[in-house]
Computed example of a mutant assay.
Amino acid sequence: MWRRIHLILWFIGLMLACKSEIHSQDKVLKVKEIKYNGQVGLEQVSQLLEQHVELEHVDLINWDKFSYRPDVAFRIAHSNNAIWLKYYVKEKNILASVGDTNGPVARDSCVEFFLDPLGNGNYYNFEFNCIGTVHLAYGPGRGQRQFVDPNTIRNLIEVQSTLGSQTFTERTGDFTWEMTIIIPAEILTHNPEIKLKGLKSTANFYKCGDATSQRHYLTWNPVGTEKPDYHRPEFFGKLIFQ
């Protein structure tokens, strides 16, 4: 009996050690402030990010069953209480079947940015298919999401993709596309009057394609779940807005 208890305690200790090891790998990303006076458009944001911000990569395969790895990178900064984000993607299959705001864009060629502003487990899931259709909700987990109003999304978030904005069926080949995004802090509707400068938050960045011919699930920070699951704020990395 004591041997069985010892084995159980050893196994629990091993699981806790593995969990601790995963969390010790959490990335820390310092989000640079880019100072800019006046109105700024997507073209200028794209250029300023290129000039001032280093590339980060979304390249981790956490689930062996899904081994396809597109080439995915991003740059992120903040300015005048808005997040500037630019994705760079190279992949074999592109799909853009969803054109309605808050539709199931994760089925398409999709990039995602999950942000927990206060690091308290309540996060926003910003999801963008490759033509810039936005899906945005807030809450503490997958089953407890509150959609942000589509009109608010369309009025506040600016998106521009090199693939345009019209839906299309899957295309196969060698594709390269980029997407520039402006996310004003106003869109964080459950955190009114939040200031990005100096904010210490948690986040993760993703690439997926649930309905593409080569399903894939890449992450920036490691996710230690048995199956692909992006709605796990305990596996977010740290995001520090300078």
Rank of each mutant, 00 (worst) to 15 (best):
I153Q: 05
A77S: 12
K65L: 14
I183R: 09
D229S: 09
I182D: 06
S201F: 07
S161H: 05
P70L: 07
I194G: 04
Y87G: 02
K32N: 07
E186D: 15
S24W: 08
V89H: 02
K197D: 15
S67P: 07
Y217K: 12
N80M: 07
L49W: 11
F147M: 13
E56P: 01
Q146E: 14
E54H: 12
G198V: 09
H216S: 10
T180Y: 09
F126K: 09
Q214G: 00
Y87C: 01
Q144L: 10
W84T: 06
H78G: 06
D26H: 11
D210P: 00
Q214L: 12
G119V: 14
T133P: 06
Y138K: 07
N122G: 00
L7W: 04
I76N: 02
L218Y: 03
A137H: 08
N37R: 14
P150Q: 05
N102Y: 00
N93C: 06
F168A: 01
S109M: 07
V89Y: 03
V98G: 02
S161T: 03
A82R: 13
V98Q: 14
K197Y: 09
I12A: 01
Y68V: 12
N80W: 03
G139D: 06
I181W: 06
F236Q: 08
K197S: 13
R75H: 00
N221Q: 11
K200M: 08
G13K: 01
W177Y: 15
L85D: 08
E56M: 05
H190R: 13
D174S: 15
H23Q: 08
M179S: 09
S20E: 02
L239Q: 01
N125T: 08
I61K: 05
R145K: 14
V111M: 01
I12P: 02
N204L: 11
A203Y: 10
M179T: 00
K30G: 00
S97N: 06
V223F: 00
T180M: 09
A77E: 05
D71C: 03
W177Q: 01
G141I: 00
N80E: 14
H57F: 13
D59F: 05
D71R: 12
V72Q: 04
L118W: 06
I240R: 07
A185W: 11
F126R: 05
V223R: 01
F74R: 03
F113W: 15
P222A: 09
G209E: 14
T176F: 12
L55S: 09
K27G: 03
G198W: 11
G103R: 09
Y68P: 05
P228C: 13
P70M: 10
P117R: 13
W2Y: 08
W84F: 11
G143R: 05
S79F: 06
G121F: 11
L188A: 04
E193V: 03
K227R: 14
G13M: 04
R171V: 01
V98M: 08
W220G: 03
L239E: 10
